[in-house]
């Protein structure tokens, strides 16, 4: 009986919220870029000082020195236009990692998690896989401004390599001090880049390097530098969380 009431409440709430939202939202086929408020912004020219000039046609592989010259538009939003937001996000991740560490080590050393004896295939193949996974993670965060991916994704891939080491051999222990130092330095580097932008251009986290040619590895100014720092920071933090959960010897 209770379940039936819960189901009825669920359906009632679903259709109440759904029918309320349905009319105002531009969903699915009703959604065109022309209907968006940001269309004028999307099509505005970036090569002239007058924003209402005729729209410039940005072209991959030939455009140089336009603002936030990242081929991956998403990265331009995350680390370019909304970089301050990302700084806050990195801070939240840092606080959570610190909180996990503080919880586990407030009451003395935690005993190591007793895993089952690693499979022979896993322990042998982890040696081959480890450099490949780390290389792939580094590729993902250094090419964050060109291809899908970026600092958070690449950092997570590298943390998965650390988890693989924990799974494969019972003797492995992540270097906790080294991880903390790496995390601290890359986080401070992000802030320093922001302060350098403030000093050189007058805006915090603004781009102060030349933007280069769209689609080249050395392009988009400060974006790849910031994403590499974020990648290092996230990989150190998530590896730290993994090793905190696994415990000490």
């Amino acid at each position: 009986m209770k379940k039936v009431i819960a189901l009825l409440l669920f359906l009632g709430l679903l259709f109440f919220l759904g029918t309320g939202l349905e009319q105002g939202l531009k969903l699915g086929d009703r959604n065109t870029l022309a209907g968006k408020a940001g269309e004028a912004y999307l099509k505005r020219t970036v090569n002239s000082a007058d924003p209402s000039a005729s729209p410039s046609q940005v072209e991959y592989g030939s455009e140089t020195d336009i603002e936030e010259n990242a081929a991956n538009t998403l990265t331009a939003v995350v680390v370019g236009y909304r970089s301050f937001d990302t700084l806050g996000e990195v801070t939240v991740l840092f606080l959570a990692a610190t909180g996990v560490m503080a919880l586990f080590f407030a009451s003395g050393k935690k005993k190591r998690l007793a895993l089952a004896k690693p499979n022979f295939i896993l322990s042998v193949s982890s040696g081959f896989l480890l450099p490949l996974i780390i290389l792939f993670g580094a590729y993902v965060f250094t090419h964050g401004h060109l291809t899908p991916g970026g600092g958070f994704q690449g950092g997570t891939i590298i943390a998965a390599a650390v988890l693989l080491l924990y799974m494969a051999g019972n003797a492995y222990k992540a270097p906790a001090t080294g991880l903390k130092v790496l995390e601290g330095f890359s986080g401070a580097g992000y802030l320093l880049i922001g302060l350098a932008g403030l000093l050189l251009t007058g805006f915090f986290l603004n781009n102060f390097l030349p933007s280069g040619k769209m689609g080249a590895l050395f392009s988009a100014g400060v974006i790849p530098v910031v994403y590499i720092l974020i990648g290092l920071k996230v990989s150190a933090e998530l590896s730290g969380i993994v090793s905190d959960y696994m415990g000490e010897d």
């Binding site: 870029l33 046609q57 072209e59 998403l74 990302t86 769209m214 689609g215």
Partner: peptide, 27 residues
């Protein structure tokens, strides 16, 4: 994402802003 296959934003790109917000939310 601009690539060799998609050299300009025409015909049309999906809106990148909600994707960026969701990236933040996932982390």
């Amino acid at each position: 994402i601009y690539t060799d296959a998609v050299k300009t934003y025409l015909p049309v790109f999906a809106d990148p802003l909600p994707q960026a917000l969701v990236l933040t939310a996932i982390v």
